[in-house]
């Protein structure tokens, strides 16, 4: 066994990648599809925006192959806001990732929301200067993505449903497994790693530190300020909100309310005030009625 942690042995740029992820803690990252939505998000206090052509709720309805956004739209958003701009590439589509890096996006989300380009392999993220965020449903998936070079993890939830149940399930699963790992004796760790399908060295690190080596955010189904505060109380360090804002009746008010809810996530009196009179939420979907082919969270290997 090596005497320094896996995290401490990564290449120089690891610090700047992980550093940006640290700076994004305690906030809201909003999906936007054009420059004017990006301006609304920034004005509301978003810490970053995710530029994409269609929000997940529309991808669900319209179907077809969902791909990386048009660089024109990404540039317009970069020119409009001063906060970090993220963009999505398809799982395994390393050329889309190269293009996004060339555009100077601040973070790439190798995302299950887009149609996967590879049904076996993810992008080898260590080779990029730009940091990556990836989704997970459990600790094994989180550590595989970190092993490939992701500097930030988000639990997947079920994007575009406006239903927080899957986000809660994934966050609870991840946190339970981390707690379990922290009290597992050393001689059991290799089998623990085998059962999770996770890199052994990262399992050792989590067992020693009791936390993921990168920040842990939440995504997929957050629709209300209460949903956002719920994910924070369950252990998320920041919340991604996709369709929940711009598919609601009053995006400006809702965006601001969700930012305020994350800042005051354990103050129920404030949350009551923040949740008042926001207009209609995204209608939402019962995730039990989705077939496996409709579940985006099952994408990722």
């Amino acid at each position: 066994m090596s005497d320094t942690l896996w995290s401490a042995r990564q290449k120089a740029t690891w610090k700047t990648k992980l550093g940006l992820a640290e700076m994004l803690k305690g906030g809201v990252i909003m999906d936007v599809t054009n420059a004017s939505e990006a301006a609304i998000a920034e004005e509301a206090g978003a810490i970053a925006v995710m530029a994409l052509e269609r929000v997940p709720a529309d991808i669900r309805v319209q179907g077809g192959v969902a791909r990386m956004s048009d660089p024109k739209m990404i540039r317009e958003i970069q020119d409009t806001v001063s906060i970090p701009v993220m963009a999505k590439c398809r799982i395994g589509h390393f050329v889309e990732a190269q293009i996004l890096e060339a555009l100077g996006v601040d973070f790439i989300d190798e995302s299950e929301v887009l149609s996967p380009a590879d049904d076996q392999f993810h992008v080898y993220k260590h080779e990029f200067k730009v940091p990556f965020v990836c989704g997970c449903r459990d600790l094994g998936e989180a550590l595989r993505r970190i092993g490939e070079g992701a500097a930030l993890i988000r639990t997947k939830g079920e994007a575009g449903t406006g239903n927080v149940i899957e986000a809660v399930r994934h966050m609870r699963t991840l946190m339970d497994q981390i707690r379990q790992l922290a009290r597992t004796p050393k001689e059991e760790l290799m089998t623990f790693a085998k059962n999770l399908g996770a890199p052994f060295e990262l399992v050792l690190e989590v067992a020693e530190t009791g936390r993921l080596p990168v920040p842990n955010f939440s995504a997929g189904g957050v629709a209300t300020p209460a949903d956002a505060a719920l994910m924070m109380q369950l252990g998320a360090e920041t919340v991604f909100v996709g369709s929940g804002i711009f598919k609601s009746a009053d995006p400006k008010r809702r965006a601001r309310a969700i930012v305020e809810a994350v800042a005051s996530y354990n103050d129920p009196k404030k949350l009551a005030e923040i949740s008042t009179d926001l207009g209609e939420s995204i209608p939402g979907i019962d995730t039990r009625q989705l077939s496996d082919t409709q579940k985006l969270a099952l994408r990722g290997w």
Binding site: A12, T13, K15, T16, G19, L20, M23, Q78, P84, E101, G104, V105, D106, F107, K129, V130, P131
Partner: peptide, 28 residues
């Protein structure tokens, strides 16, 4: 100093103490 891909690490002279230098991470 640029967007995230221009973020960098360096070591800088520091006049506040006798040690004289400080490692620095610049992020956006």
């Amino acid at each position: 100093y640029g967007r995230q891909t221009e973020s960098f690490e360096t070591s800088l002279p520091f006049e506040g103490t006798e040690k004289g230098s400080v490692p620095a991470v610049f992020i956006r």
